[in-house]
Design a protein around this nucleic acid. Sequence first.
DNA 1: AATGAATGAGGATTCATTCAT
DNA 2: GATGAATGAATCCTCATTCAT
Lengths: 206, 206, 206, 206
Amino acid sequence: MAREKDGGKRAAIMAAAKKLFATEGFHGASMSDLARATSLPVGSLYTYFESKEALVRAIIEEGWGEFFSNLADTLTAVRRPEVKLAIIVYRILPGLFEDVELITILLSEGARYAGLEEKLEALTALIADLVLELARERGMAMAFPQSQAKAALALYFLGSLDTVRLSKMAGLEIPTEDILDFVRLSIENTFRIDLDPSLAAALPSK
Amino acid sequence: MAREKDGGKRAAIMAAAKKLFATEGFHGASMSDLARATSLPVGSLYTYFESKEALVRAIIEEGWGEFFSNLADTLTAVRRPEVKLAIIVYRILPGLFEDVELITILLSEGARYAGLEEKLEALTALIADLVLELARERGMAMAFPQSQAKAALALYFLGSLDTVRLSKMAGLEIPTEDILDFVRLSIENTFRIDLDPSLAAALPSK
Amino acid sequence: MAREKDGGKRAAIMAAAKKLFATEGFHGASMSDLARATSLPVGSLYTYFESKEALVRAIIEEGWGEFFSNLADTLTAVRRPEVKLAIIVYRILPGLFEDVELITILLSEGARYAGLEEKLEALTALIADLVLELARERGMAMAFPQSQAKAALALYFLGSLDTVRLSKMAGLEIPTEDILDFVRLSIENTFRIDLDPSLAAALPSK
Amino acid sequence: MAREKDGGKRAAIMAAAKKLFATEGFHGASMSDLARATSLPVGSLYTYFESKEALVRAIIEEGWGEFFSNLADTLTAVRRPEVKLAIIVYRILPGLFEDVELITILLSEGARYAGLEEKLEALTALIADLVLELARERGMAMAFPQSQAKAALALYFLGSLDTVRLSKMAGLEIPTEDILDFVRLSIENTFRIDLDPSLAAALPSK
DNA sequence: AATGAATGAGGATTCATTCAT
DNA sequence: GATGAATGAATCCTCATTCAT
């Protein structure tokens, strides 16, 4: 039997590539740089990833996948919409915001190869349901028409990602906590809801 | 006397570069591509711009400069803060949003060479004053602490830019109009103000 | 295991580069010229040498190193100073003078990258000791003050190299033998010594 | 009538080029660099010199010409050979050695275009006569056969130039004075002559 | 599977010279 | 004559990928 492809090595490559792509840019980091960073021969990179593109794609897919499945899990596992929101806002978003490297790559030229827009569509769809739920429960007329809700979501999501990115990568002085606070406050105002942190703590994290 | 450096040629190079950088990415567009696109010999590109970096820098500087001076002009030329806001929201932002190429470059790796964060700081400072003015006039307690205002502004600004970019460049289906509507509505809600389009129309555009 | 870096290829590149740099000049010979001369793709040149500069440096280092270690070996392996001189003058110098390509490069712009002056200092130091030894043994008052000895050595060394170079590369009609004869005679006169060729033949060459 | 070619401008170009070629190398200094250094438009350089090559050639020709005509003048104007030698050694050589820039260019790749070897032949011929004269007058059997005299002269001449160059341009620590002293001493020893400085002072300099 | 040398098209940039003005 | 923009071949070097070992 031939040796198995080594999962640890694959992970190591992805980790190093994530850092490199984030700091140097997709084009700024060469496969040789990556080989050096991982102390692996160039050839090996190609036994784990078909191409440089495939590598970014994998990084984005994994990062996004984790974020997205956390989100989906929460939405299905939890019943009360305000708890869903609280978990998103106190656990899932902060987790994503921690990962500046992923964010940077997500917003970079490398994302060209990863279909960011479809991911956003899926996200939008998921949240749209949550919003509907909330509106129904609270007997609210939706503050925005559906189309604006989509714009609102994209704007908030991309806006926070980009703000986090610029803060951490380019020295813009805005603490991630301020961004999160603003997002929470906006949600609370929009849905006239109270997002108590304890709501999020109630459920065990995945 | 020899031929004068041709302003039209310089502009043509910038225009072509803007399009190329936006569609192919800063690294994806080579100077040879640009030469072909402008029907100019490579060498000529370098009589007008010291380097590829200098070229993006010029594009960003020019685009941002126009946007920013429009903004600054409005803020000094107009007295009533709600009119300032209306002009920003009905004239200046739409103008900026029209220029997807600029937006794309602004958010790309090319911006690495253009100090985007300083530009954002300047923008933030300008708007912060406007917000204070508004709050004072309306006798409102500020809805957010100062720090969150900064986060809020960055988030809204970057978020709309990025949403516009993805809509127009990557097929995310969100009309620019929805984005603008959402921004207006948010402002109206935040400041309990009414941003009638006619307020903006009142003043002659620059 | 992948192919090993091929020492023969490295040597072939150096040999071809040596010839090219000597005949065309460091700037006159392009890396493409070298690729053509070696029937190797340009890229391969760079798997063996980091840059064009590194390539000249290697050539100079190797050539000088061989010359210098021959010299140093002789000085330590042999006891009698007149035998040392004889070996230098009948074996080591002629060997160096044979290598016009090396000499040409040594005296060219390429040497800018190779610290010729430090090499000369080292050479001077080595010979200075020999001269002292000789003077002491022969009970001679040194003909020159120390400082002039340094000037004398540099002048003789650089002068012979340059004369050899111009003879062989530019058609100046001075046989290498004449240059060597003159150097020998000068030494014999200076130290009132007799440099019989047989003294040099006595020792086995390295 | 058209404006005359401006001699001052031509001289200024040559002076600046001399400095640039010496410090940056012939290839290292571009015509644009030269234009900047002279505050002259590139085009003007070409109204005074047909090409970059022609420019080095002119620099070498002028520098060498001055040196050589000084030498020739002395040899014809003065009768006693020891005075000739004294003038050469106390006035002409020091003058040449002062001009490191010229020396550097003379020994550089730029000299490729200037026929250095013919110049050396001419110099050799001139000095050979002087040597013969001396030998005859002093009733000496020539210390060297004619061929070695040629080698000796080339070696001394090129050697001192190269030593001066490396001292002043590359930090080799040998004062020009030491070089000159050594040359004088060598001549005095060779021809059993006394080169009193006052011999040189006797004649008015050109 | 592992390795890392090999490849050569393509990258940004320079530069001597020309020539329209 | 003076000017300096125009030119495009040529410069050094990089890099994703392949493939012999």
